[in-house]
Amino acid sequence: MLRDTWLIFRRDMKAALRNPTWLMIGLAQPLMYLFFFGPLLVDMLKRGGLSDVDGWMLLTPALIAQLALFGSSFVGFGLLADYRAGVVERFRVTPVSRVALLLGKVLANSLQAVVQAAVIIVLAYLVFDLDAPFAGVLFSLLIVFLLAVTLSASSYALALTLKSEETFPAFLNAVLMPLLLLSGILIPITAGHAPAWLYTVSQINPFRHVVDVERSGFGGDFSMDALFTGSVVVLVMAAVSVWWGTRTFQKDSA
């Protein structure tokens, strides 16, 4: 299975390198937030006394989480295109493992998300004097990788379940927008400044805890209290998503 996974991974990575346009398009939104929204947020946090932490330490980890959230959630479109073109069907008549078919694609997508996140972090260091510890940045990139695994595996499973280019984006938009708003990506949702009901609802959102653990890593806080919840949440989500994706690929190939 390892060889099959490597073959699918290499195929998808070569395709991405031959046409890096989609990688640049995926970077466009977080870059606009970084350059056009970041200075406003940092100034607002400083003047309003909403946080004692440097605004770039709050925004940058949130942006790389947002990049994984949106970039990896829509990879199912590529699978739908392959499905319509008969590529998936051709893979089925080969001895390639169905699990490897999923894992190879998921790993390729996740590596691309990590590279994009690294670009955002480097720009934040160079342009906005980000002062995050190196160990915290590496930890955050690992979280981005696991989040991308979660979302890309779920996206592939959902695409094979729906098999509709019309239903797929509508469903994703309906789910992703509340996840984004309730994760505190744009502005941290804290007990002291958010309405009690909004803070409570945000605590139910698993991506809220992923963003929190990203920010803890950037802040150099490696205590158990800071890292435990978010790390467990993203590990569980990754495991469940890969299990769902594997079952869907095997069932659809039966």
Rank of each mutant, 00 (worst) to 15 (best):
L179Q: 13
T21K: 11
D43F: 01
E166L: 15
L23W: 14
M177K: 05
F228C: 04
D129W: 10
V175Q: 14
L198G: 08
Q203W: 08
F249A: 00
P39H: 09
L141P: 02
D212F: 01
G86P: 03
A62F: 06
K251Q: 07
S164Y: 15
S183I: 06
L235V: 09
G104L: 08
V236Y: 11
L7W: 00
A157W: 14
S152V: 07
G192W: 09
K46T: 10
S110V: 10
G104M: 07
A159N: 11
L79F: 03
Q116F: 04
W6H: 00
V106E: 13
L27E: 15
I25N: 08
Q112L: 10
A28H: 10
V53K: 11
S154C: 15
D129L: 11
G217H: 02
L182Y: 09
L176M: 13
T167W: 15
D129Q: 14
K105Y: 06
I185T: 09
A85N: 11
V122T: 13
F222S: 02
Y156V: 09
T60N: 06
M32W: 14
A81R: 10
D225G: 00
G184A: 07
L181R: 05
A194W: 13
Q203Y: 02
G219M: 11
F36H: 04
A15M: 12
M32V: 15
V127R: 03
P206F: 05
Y125K: 07
V210Y: 08
G71V: 03
I189A: 07
V234E: 07
M177N: 05
V233N: 04
T246P: 00
P206S: 02
F139M: 05
N205Q: 07
P133W: 07
D225E: 08
F222T: 07
T21P: 01
S152T: 12
L67W: 05
V114G: 05
V211N: 08
A157H: 13
T167F: 14
P206K: 04
I187N: 05
A85Y: 12
P20S: 02
L158A: 14
Q66Y: 14
L186K: 03
S241N: 11
K251M: 05
L34G: 13
A118Q: 10
S110K: 10
K251I: 06
T200C: 05
V88E: 11
L141F: 01
F37R: 08
R18K: 07
D212L: 12
D252Q: 07
R98N: 06
W56N: 00
L151G: 06
K251L: 08
S202C: 05
W6C: 00
D212C: 01
L176A: 09
V175W: 14
Q112S: 12
I189N: 10
V242M: 11
F249R: 02
H193T: 12
F218G: 02
D131A: 10
A28E: 11
G217S: 08
A65D: 03
G136W: 03
V115T: 02
V149S: 03
L63P: 03
L147E: 14
V236G: 11
A135L: 15
T200R: 14
A191Y: 01
G230M: 05
R92A: 04
I143E: 10
M13H: 01
V210W: 06
S155N: 15
V242F: 02
L142T: 10
T60D: 04
D221T: 01
